[in-house]
Design a protein around this nucleic acid. Sequence first.
DNA 1: TATGAATGAGGATTCATTCAT
DNA 2: GATGAATGAATCCTCATTCAT
Lengths: 204, 204, 204, 204
Amino acid sequence: MAKSTKRDKPVNKPKQKRSIETRNKILEVGSMLMLKEGYHNVTTDDIAKAAGLSTGIVYHYFKDKKDILLIALDQHANALYEGITEKFATVTEGNFEDFFNTLFDFLLDYHKQAWVIHEELEGLYHSDPEIAATTNKYWEKTYASIAEIYVQKSAKPEHALEKTKMAIDIIEDFCHACMNPIVDHLDQDFMRQETISIIKSLLT
Amino acid sequence: MAKSTKRDKPVNKPKQKRSIETRNKILEVGSMLMLKEGYHNVTTDDIAKAAGLSTGIVYHYFKDKKDILLIALDQHANALYEGITEKFATVTEGNFEDFFNTLFDFLLDYHKQAWVIHEELEGLYHSDPEIAATTNKYWEKTYASIAEIYVQKSAKPEHALEKTKMAIDIIEDFCHACMNPIVDHLDQDFMRQETISIIKSLLT
Amino acid sequence: MAKSTKRDKPVNKPKQKRSIETRNKILEVGSMLMLKEGYHNVTTDDIAKAAGLSTGIVYHYFKDKKDILLIALDQHANALYEGITEKFATVTEGNFEDFFNTLFDFLLDYHKQAWVIHEELEGLYHSDPEIAATTNKYWEKTYASIAEIYVQKSAKPEHALEKTKMAIDIIEDFCHACMNPIVDHLDQDFMRQETISIIKSLLT
Amino acid sequence: MAKSTKRDKPVNKPKQKRSIETRNKILEVGSMLMLKEGYHNVTTDDIAKAAGLSTGIVYHYFKDKKDILLIALDQHANALYEGITEKFATVTEGNFEDFFNTLFDFLLDYHKQAWVIHEELEGLYHSDPEIAATTNKYWEKTYASIAEIYVQKSAKPEHALEKTKMAIDIIEDFCHACMNPIVDHLDQDFMRQETISIIKSLLT
DNA sequence: TATGAATGAGGATTCATTCAT
DNA sequence: GATGAATGAATCCTCATTCAT
């Protein structure tokens, strides 16, 4: 994996509808499995089987196993970007409360479906430069898209990126704590309250 | 064959100096490699070679490859606990500023040497229940030991665990952002200032 | 790692001609080698090589090394059953002499090609419960199919299973003694005569 | 195992009491384990541990693992021989009933403690010429010692070896059937009766 | 395009045997 | 004689990748 001495193999970027569907199926099923089970615990065979396809076909559409993850990641980032754009489209400019609630809800929601990918990527981050690069791009795009909205909506757009990033991280910490209750009996209501209060004072 | 007739392989917990040294060498080299390269990118042979030993001896001291990681993790947690206890021993009771600075410095410092392990564990977390359990214990201990100090030193010990956890997470976010600057040009001074201010208002 | 998340590996039960041939080749070569050299003295690599295949393909068709032996054994039992049924089809009902001669010849013949498997199994019997179970099924089937014929053909069908089993064992003792003359100079003709006389008085 | 290209290594045949005890302990525990678990399922370490000794010492007294089995086997044969001699010492000459009962009881008894060794040896027989040779010697001695008694006690000593061997085999078949009831619901009383009757008519 | 059989290098683990102490 | 740590070849099995059909 860590070696990137891959001779360039022509990989299909298909235009036929059937092909596109096949490719997407692999992407969808593949990323889903990788995230649920962990990159190293899923075989290309597993992916093909789960997608209802044959072993070999995977390599028509993707250079190798890693390619599936990388491209899925990319799609993910794009989808996220569009999700954000759409979601925040209706937020009234200057209405911070509105922006804030939207952000909080959006991240909570997003977290539920996508958090695992972050953790999985952390683990892969150090072992593969290509993954590290893509991961960075992913985050950059995520932060940037929200910061962009923040700049538009907020009255205090200085240090937008820093503040946005911090806000996101803190909200994610909260989500994480709720979903992975390492310490039992944590008072989640209290934590939510505190989180909201922190974010508000940070972004206002 | 005949797994059923195989009693659980006894793993040496040696008391002899020679043995202890060997075991420690494996632990040290092994965890170092795993963290640098990633668990799945290091073979037991790599570890043995790097420790200047032969393949087989690894299994004299450890049940399997995972065992090395798990035990290294455990040692880590203990070292951390002792580090915290020692570090905070001199903090004046009731002196919040003192407590806070110690915490901030401690985590910054700690993070520099140990954050890789966290990321590696994140990636392994979902694929292996045993690792998940040990990771949880690790964090529980960390949070609890700091919360314990907090209770002793602070005037407002309510929700100590929640607040401590949040504070640690937020400081970690900051450390993480500094060490792995996904987005370039982030104003680290600004982020540090904001982080400190958040933590202060959270813990006071 | 993460055994728990590993669904049971599906093993191909192929219907394509190519596949069936490959599988049979492995079975044939594998059981042959195991019986000639002994289960523990044959590696899966040996089997693959001898079958003109690569290591990996073996595990496409068989769960593990033991699976090869177990399935070969099963095939053996079925072949034996059909052999018996066919062989005894023409025996005249009530004609004991006819039945007896058929039995004696059949076992003598059968023994020549299959007794190695029995010995190999004896050795494996105590070390592996799965092998023990399959071996038992094998024998059960063998005894039962001959007993069934005995009941049909004989005038004294009481204790058919016991008598059949004893007869078979005694004939096998004879075969064994002939093929593996531990003590040289044994008078085989005498032993054959005595064996026949014992069986006759037992079954009549 | 199957290779016998063993350079001659001097192996201690100790005369000191302490040494003899150690050697016997290895022999005793080693053969016991090998027979209970199967030769390939017992490691030299298991044997050393079970004997309360260290790994290395085994190789002071025995050439290799196989040597333990072979020598144990030899001792076994001798013990058996002495057991037989002693047991039959008091049998009245010419009293066939007495001889027969002694034989039947003796084998029944012997079977209980030693049958496993036979099965284990069957499995090893083909994979190693040295084992095959020793096994043959073992059986030869066993059969011969009983035949010798038979000759002394019986009025019809012709074909003593053949008859003795057959008798022993048949009694063993019975023992085997009782201890390994492959087919359930076998009428053991009936089988015992038949076995006795067969043996009587064979030996008289 | 699609299939799935085949490849084979790689990796975890075992264990008979040796050797420094 | 004893110990038990150390060796390393051997073995089972996996899985990314290729290829004949």
